[in-house]
């Protein structure tokens, strides 16, 4: 888990949203802003390859990624993160329309903290962020 606490104060979560739909990224960003948790910088990427570039240059606490994306899928992104081993504390959350048992099994060894199925109600995202923040304290 990221170090989100300093002497009792909760450090804002820096998050990266990866989805090939700009509207979905905007929606997730908006819902995250509505949650009662401290959100710091919010970065966006349209596919896994762009996400890797952000991870290489920014400090990210939590990654929210779609699965089906062009260039590099979410599964490929998570595998690349595993392969590199550079971000062991990065919290990984999948937000995808594909909630099949087969897909969940496919990513079961990729240290995914939470799997959110689209479409989701805003409170689901709020609960995920609250859990991430609480776990980091």
């Amino acid at each position: 888990m990221p170090d989100t606490s300093v002497a009792g104060a909760v450090r804002p979560l820096s998050i990266l949203i990866v989805d090939d739909s700009a509207m979905m990224r905007a929606m997730i960003k908006r819902v995250a802003g509505l949650a009662d948790v401290p959100i710091g910088a919010v970065y966006e990427a349209a596919n896994g390859a762009e996400a890797i570039q952000v991870l290489e240059t920014q400090t990210i606490h939590a990654l929210f990624t779609d699965i089906n994306m062009p260039v590099m899928t979410g599964t490929e992104l998570l595998r690349e993160i595993e392969r590199r081993g550079q971000w062991p504390d990065l919290v990984r959350v999948i937000i995808s329309t594909d909630g099949s048992a087969a897909r969940r099994e496919e990513v079961s060894d990729l240290h995914v903290k939470c799997y959110v199925e689209k479409p989701f109600r805003p409170e689901v995202m709020r609960d995920v962020l609250t859990d991430l923040t609480a776990a980091g304290q």
Partner: peptide
């Protein structure tokens, strides 16, 4: 167009997940 595409993507993904929960489907952009 982005939003309409995402709606279609969510409908398709939800439908496939419910119809074939034990199979992996890949969706196009």
């Amino acid at each position: 167009f982005d939003m309409v595409g995402e709606l279609a993507n969510m409908i398709c993904g939800t439908w496939l997940t419910r119809t074939y929960p034990d199979q992996v489907y890949n969706l196009s952009h």
